[in-house]
């Protein structure tokens, strides 16, 4: 209870919780499209590909302003996406290999740049590597505002292009036959995912970003068969995971925020998988057990007989 009160009074906690909630909403919404298009791991590749962008932005401008670094991250992530698309389209290399190639080589480049900067640049580079694991605890009000603006724009675009994105997700061939430029729409959607990744880098970091996109969408999928409902639920679940992760990490100063967000999210995913009505694994298991018991009790024989007589 005291913790909840602090949520509204404590400056740091408020920023962290707000930032995590924002990230949860944006990545939850965009993750729905990524997961339904079976591109869940794209977010993982993009977040790793963003690392060299952060370093290059720092080297070129000498600034550590989040907006500058995040612009670099976004650009690098975007280049990574185009490369992945090109490799998948024009060679026989499968999508998961293409993801792995871009992810690991870009990340390697990022590490080379990080180590190079730390040895050759007079300016203090400390703080660049916080994008690796994210440091939600260092979020200040201006960071949260930046995240809110970026996320708001992304959500607005989703709202405006909802119909097109829905069509692209479920029936790209039909979308193309209606005259929509599916290629451009696809790139647009991916660009929005890059925005979500960029928002997440500061909070949960490169490594855990994949789960922020996939987790809420997968959890929401268990509760509903409607896209609009799934998107709303995913945003909610993402926000819930974000806030609870932030609260848990603040309650004990040794706990890092990013991992706690991901662990709360994992719990939400598992609960949804097992206990969501209709699709829940627990219900399916109970149903199966009941049927098996009925079989063993021999009731099926009498049922068969009844069926034969009538």
């Amino acid at each position: 209870m005291k913790l909840l009160l602090e949520l509204f009074t404590d400056y740091t906690l408020r920023n962290v919780a707000l930032g995590a909630a924002l990230l949860g909403i944006v990545s939850g919404v965009l993750g729905c499209f990524a997961v339904l298009r079976r591109q869940g791991l794209l977010g993982d590749a993009l977040s790793h590909a963003a690392l060299p962008g952060i370093c290059v932005a720092f080297v070129l401008t000498g600034s550590k302003a989040p907006l500058v670094l995040l612009a670099g991250a976004g650009l690098a992530g975007w280049v990574g996406t185009l490369l992945i698309n090109r490799i998948v389209r024009d060679t026989r290399i499968s999508e998961d290999s293409a993801l792995g190639i871009v992810l690991s080589t870009f990340f390697g480049l990022g590490i080379v740049l990080l180590t190079w900067i730390s040895k050759h640049n007079n300016a203090n580079q400390a703080g660049l590597d916080r994008y690796l694991f994210g440091q939600a605890a260092t979020l200040v009000a201006s960071n949260v505002v930046t995240m809110a603006v970026l996320g708001g724009v992304a959500l607005l675009v989703v709202l405006l292009l909802y119909k097109e994105f829905k069509l692209l997700t479920f029936d790209p061939a039909f979308a193309a036959s209606l005259g929509f430029n599916t290629n451009r729409l696809s790139i647009g959607l991916t660009t929005l995912i890059v925005v979500a990744v960029v928002i997440g880098l500061q909070t949960v970091g490169v490594v855990l970003m994949a789960a922020m996109l996939i987790g809420p969408a997968v959890a929401a999928r268990q509760w509903t068969n409607r896209l609009s409902m799934m998107i709303a639920l995913a945003g909610l679940i993402g926000a819930l995971a974000g806030v609870s992760g932030a609260l848990i990490s603040v309650s004990d100063h040794h706990l890092p925020t990013g991992p706690m967000i991901i662990l709360s999210l994992t719990v939400l995913v598992l609960v949804s998988l097992f206990f969501a009505p209709a699709r829940g694994l627990a219900w399916a298991w109970l149903r199966q057990r009941r049927q098996r018991r009925a079989m063993r009790a021999g009731r099926w024989q009498s049922k068969l007989k009844q069926g034969g007589q009538s």
Binding site: V35, R38, G40, L41, G43, A211, I214, G215, A217, T266
Partner: peptide, 8 residues
């Protein structure tokens, strides 16, 4: 899906 399972 398989890739989502990995990502979780």
């Amino acid at each position: 899906g398989g890739e989502s399972a990995i990502g979780i």
